[in-house]
Design a protein around this nucleic acid. Sequence first.
RNA 1: CGGGGUAUAGCGUAGUCCGGUUAGCGCGCCUGCUUUGGGAGCAGGAGGUCGCAGGUUCGAAUCCUGCUACCCCGACCA
Length: 374
Amino acid sequence: MIIRPTSETIIWDTYKKWIQSYRDLPLLINQWANVVRWEMRTRLLLRTAEFLWQEGHTAHATEKEAIEESEKMLDIYAEFAEKWMAMPVLKGVKSPSERFAGAVETYCIEALMQDGKALQAGTSHFLGQNFAKAFDVKFLSKENTLQYVWATSWGVSTRLMGALIMAHSDDKGLVLPPKLAPIQVVIIPIYRKEEQLAEISKVAVKIKDALQAKGISVKFDDRDTYKPGWKFNEYEFKGIPVRLAIGPRDLENGTIEVARRDTLEKETYQITDIENKVEHILEQIQDNLYQKALSFREDNTYVVDSWDEFKDVIENKGGFVLAHWDGTSETEDKIKAETKATIRTIPMDGKSEEGTCVYSGKPSNQRVVFAKAY
RNA sequence: CGGGGUAUAGCGUAGUCCGGUUAGCGCGCCUGCUUUGGGAGCAGGAGGUCGCAGGUUCGAAUCCUGCUACCCCGACCA
């Protein structure tokens, strides 16, 4: 185990040895590492003393290239959150007080959990030349001048699993987006006698093969030790997106029952072409989960212009609050002290809009996002 | 680190204030029969150092002392 204050120390100590010429740039090192942090208080899946994360560190010849890199990584994280986790995120930059120590700019993606609290799901930093100067990392440019390199760093962690769970789950258990579900479809036979199971299995295995041929992961649960009802609940608990049930009645009618985890709806389909129908349903579930989370966020985002309303929303409703802020950390601190809400992000695509700070009444030209956060 | 709480069968718990049969219940587990399209029913059964170490008492899950572990809230933080 290696103990160091922050990853940058070990990375930049090494980069100093590796970087001499503009020909050595850009440089990107990504690592997956278990890290240990001293935390006064831990929180399951969100803030544990030890966790697995991915961290990338880059070095560039120009400021422009480094900024582009940190923005690109933020986009990649946002795309993963939205397209794969079906979790909408706000992209933006952190206020100076929430900024990573040593960064010139900290970019972040912020998600809203079902309990109305915000969760930072990933960060990307433009480090300027801060670490290059601290670790004396210079390169010789094409023009034969000695210059400090420009840097970025970025990462996401197993915290994303906590985010996934809190974004979609319901009272029946976990809800997994199809694109991330280890098992996307489960097939459950319904039968009385051994002979019936044998008949059903023939059909079930055929469906399983057809689904697998389309790249869909399937489990055929023909265990005789549990009853169908028990299995239904079990797979709902585990968040399997689609459940197929086949019984004697289906064999007679050439049908199959399809149940969706996201809506809990059941529907009986003709078994013909079932693999294409299921594939389509998986896509619908992926899309529906995202839309559901997006609607939830929209329903829980409030545009607020007065301090009383601000306090009321933060205290009684939760969610994101869009309000004007005078840009000072003094105001930010006071708001936090009085309401526990912090500036989660200053949206990148936020429209500029003249207004007055919700706390101090001083002029402001953009709304920022406040929320209570994990 | 401060405040609060909990510890009893694989899991969840009652009993603890006010000491007294064999520590009760639900789920799970085992056996048999009946069941199987939403967590099966009936009958019988197995399973307990009551967190650990001392003490008080004729007698301790219960009272006292010390310890340990875990949970919640706060400060810290992603």
